[in-house]
Amino acid sequence: MCLFSFLVLIIFSFAFGTGLKSFKGIIPGILWVAFIFSGLLGLSRSFGVERDKGTLPGLLLCPVSPWEIFLAKMIGTLIFTVIMEIFTLLVFTILYNQNFLPFLLPLGLVIFLGTLGFSIIGTIFSAMSSTTRTRDVMLSILVFPISVPVIIAAVKATGLILDGTSIQTVFSWLKILVAFDFVFLLLAYLTFGFIMEE
C-alpha cells in the first residue's frame, strides 16, 4: 500500500511536471487520489485473504456477531490505511516541499473522517466482492460511486484547510463526512449479517 501510494505521487509529479509548484489547488486532489487508490488495495485483501485461505467459515463459527466481525475488519483496514496515509504525507512533504505541520490537527481530523467513511463502505463491499471471480474490478466498481460524497467532502475540506481558512468554513464539509460515517455505520449494522450468510 505504502509503495503504491509512493508510486502514485511519483506518477503525478511526472504528469504535471513543473506546473505543480505554481498550482496549489490540485494538492488535495493528488493526496486523495493516492489515499483512495492505495486504500483500495488494502480493502481487497481484507476479506480476500479469508476467502483464499478458507478461514471465513472459522471466523463465522466464532461466538461473535457479524457486526463485531465487521467492526474488527473495518478497524483493521482503518489502521493500515491511516499508517499508509501518514507515510504518504511524509513522502509528499519531501517530494513537493509542502509543509503540513501548521494544519496538522484539522487536517488529521478530515483525513480520519474521510478514511473512516471509505473504510466502512469498503469493508462492506470487500465482503461482497471477495466471493466473486473478478474481485478487484468489482470492488472498485462498487466502492467508487458510493464514495463520491466522501471524496468530494474530503478533497474540499483538505483544500480549505491547506488554504489556511478558518474552521467555520470547513465545518459544513465536516458535517457531511460525519453524516456519511454515521449513516453507513448504521447500514452496516443492519445489513452485514445478510452478507455473511453462506
Binding site: 463520491v148 459544513s172 457531511i176
Partner: peptide, 8 residues
C-alpha cells in the same frame, strides 16, 4: 448525501 455534497 451525494446530492447534498455536490450542491455544496
Amino acid at each position: 448525501i451525494t446530492f447534498l455534497a455536490i450542491r455544496l
